[in-house]
């Protein structure tokens, strides 16, 4: 594509300049068409969950009484899975997302461990890894009871 000033054949130069402009015009059209499409497909602004209460999957606050001694359950706190375990009357909390590949962990009362069903990773009550492939421990979360609800402490 020759866009230099070729004085010998003006029509050729004009045609080349025109071609360049046409190319630019087409690019402008394409960009103009694609931009709204990309905006449309982009992830939407995440709904901020005012999450300080541990909820079940339907958004109903978990009843503190239902968490009996020695048992655990996974609920939603601030939109994220959180494991709550009742031990010696206290409620202990942890991020329930396994640090290996993202599965949701569960409390195993028989083994007295937090375990991950995907690849057998195990954590103790401090959240530290004691067995299996997870590269690091799960984050403990302070929880407290208010009324019959379990809240972020």
């Amino acid at each position: 594509m020759n866009i230099g000033l070729d004085m010998d054949s003006n029509s050729t130069t004009r045609r080349s300049v025109l071609d360049v402009l046409l190319g630019l015009g087409s690019i402008a059209s394409v960009v103009g068409a694609i931009s709204p499409v990309l905006a449309y497909l982009s992830p939407l602004a995440k709904q901020v969950s005012s999450g300080n209460t541990l909820e079940d999957k339907n958004g109903i606050p978990v009843s503190a009484e239902s968490l009996t001694e020695g048992s655990g359950l996974v609920g939603r706190l601030g939109g994220l899975p959180v494991l709550a375990i009742r031990k010696n009357g206290q409620i202990l909390g942890y991020s329930a997302v396994c640090t290996h590949l993202g599965c949701v962990v569960r409390w195993s009362p028989d083994k007295d461990r937090i375990e991950c069903p995907c690849h057998g990773g195990q954590f103790n009550l401090l959240g530290a890894v004691v067995s299996g492939p997870p590269p690091e421990g799960i984050q403990p979360i302070t929880l407290r009871v208010e009324g019959n609800r379990i809240l972020r402490g």
Binding site: S11, R14, R15, L18, D19, L21, L22, G25, S26, A28, S29, G32
Partner: peptide
């Protein structure tokens, strides 16, 4: 603006083709 610009360019191109 973009549409009209493109239309004008296309018309010019057609005229140019006619000349060659």
């Amino acid at each position: 603006g973009i549409i009209l610009a493109n239309i004008i360019l296309l018309l010019l191109k057609k005229k140019n083709l006619g000349r060659s």
